[in-house]
């Protein structure tokens, strides 16, 4: 029932997202078969809406996996250095082999995120004092360090402002032919859905999951693989979108509980809805210009997250 309602909301948001923009397009134009406007829709509007939905679903699902694997509600791509690692991969690619193709770019970003996630998990396992807030603090420090290494190279190449611009989460540059990499997150999302329960078990610890007959290492690696694939695909197509993986799962778990099989579809749908709404808001606020989605999500996300952690105790 809830799933159905959320799906309906998502559909409405998606349709609104299709018809918001500088060029004035209304549903009537589709029925009139206005060729110019249809072209606009298929080149710009549909890719943008699709990318938003995929990014919203992907980032919030990644958040859920990371939270399950570390058994910590405050771990997400933003607080585990994952976003910073993807940035670093992209930066290194752009500095050393800028002319190579998009597939290689994806590979770079993916490898960096994957390695960073491995390191982060290794660090988390060492933390003896399992304060809920301490783990994300360490993750944020970790991210800061990765960031400082990237900054070193960016300064050397004199591209600090450009990197800044590339990394700012923004869907306005999404056009047909330039965003398809984001579909790579689709298999990751499906795998996550199938493995959801196993990630929870793995989060309970190595011994516990062995006891239940699970291959701990394999499941852990599958989880990291999915997260890295999704995050790097989103960062490459749209830039960094902070907080999404953090707040969507937390709000959903506050409202609907923690049974992953039941809540995972809700997390996915809410993530997409949240991102679509933020994007629509960003497009309307200073119309005909746009506020990048990185900014809108970060403002709304930071406020929600602060409310969450201050109320929690």
């Amino acid at each position: 029932m809830r799933t159905l309602i959320l799906t309906l909301i998502l559909l409405v948001c998606a349709v609104v997202s299709l018809f918001v923009g500088v060029a004035d397009i209304s549903i009537v134009d589709i029925f009139h078969w206005d060729a110019e406007k249809l072209a606009l829709i298929s080149i710009s509007r549909i890719p943008r809406t699709a990318a938003l939905i995929l990014a919203g679903v992907g980032m919030s699902i990644s958040g859920v996996i990371m939270q399950q694997m570390t058994q910590n509600k405050f771990v997400a791509p933003t607080t585990a250095g994952t976003l910073e690692a993807a940035k670093m991969g992209l930066l290194i690619f752009l500095i050393f082999i800028p002319t190579a193709g998009a597939a290689l770019k994806m590979l770079f970003a993916f490898l960096f995120t994957f390695i960073a996630s491995l390191i982060f998990l290794a660090i988390v396992r060492k933390i003896r004092y399992r304060n809920v807030v301490f783990v994300p603090l360490v993750g944020l420090m970790f991210g800061g360090i990765i960031g400082s290494i990237s900054t070193f190279f960016a300064v050397r190449m004199n591209i600090v402002q450009d990197t800044n611009a590339w990394m700012m989460g923004d869907f306005s540059g999404i056009l047909q032919g330039r965003y398809e990499l984001i579909y790579l997150s689709l298999p990751a999302i499906i795998i996550t859905y199938l493995y959801a329960n196993k990630f929870t078990v793995v989060g309970m610890g190595e011994d516990f999951s062995r006891n239940l007959g699970l291959n701990y290492r394999a499941i852990m690696n599958i989880g990291l693989f999915c997260v890295s694939l999704t995050v790097s695909a989103v960062v490459i197509t749209a830039g960094a979108i902070p907080f999404l993986g953090l707040i969507v799962p937390n709000v959903v778990s506050l409202l609907f509980g923690d049974n992953l099989k039941k809540t995972l579809p809700l997390v996915a749908l809410s993530g997409a809805i949240f991102l679509l709404l933020c994007d629509i808001a960003g497009r309307i606020v200073i119309y005909p210009y746009e506020v990048p989605i990185g900014v809108t999500v970060s403002i709304i996300g930071a406020i929600i997250f602060l409310i969450l952690i201050i109320r929690k105790r």
Binding site: F74, T78, V133, P136, L137, L140, N164, M167, M168, P242, F243, V291, P292, G294, V295, S298, I299, A302, F305, L306, I309, I310
Partner: peptide, 18 residues
């Protein structure tokens, strides 16, 4: 306290980058 500080910091950073 730290976490709230860092989150606000991230927010400020986004505003600065914009």
């Amino acid at each position: 306290l730290l976490l709230v500080g860092i989150i606000l910091g991230t927010l400020f950073n986004s505003l600065s980058s914009f």
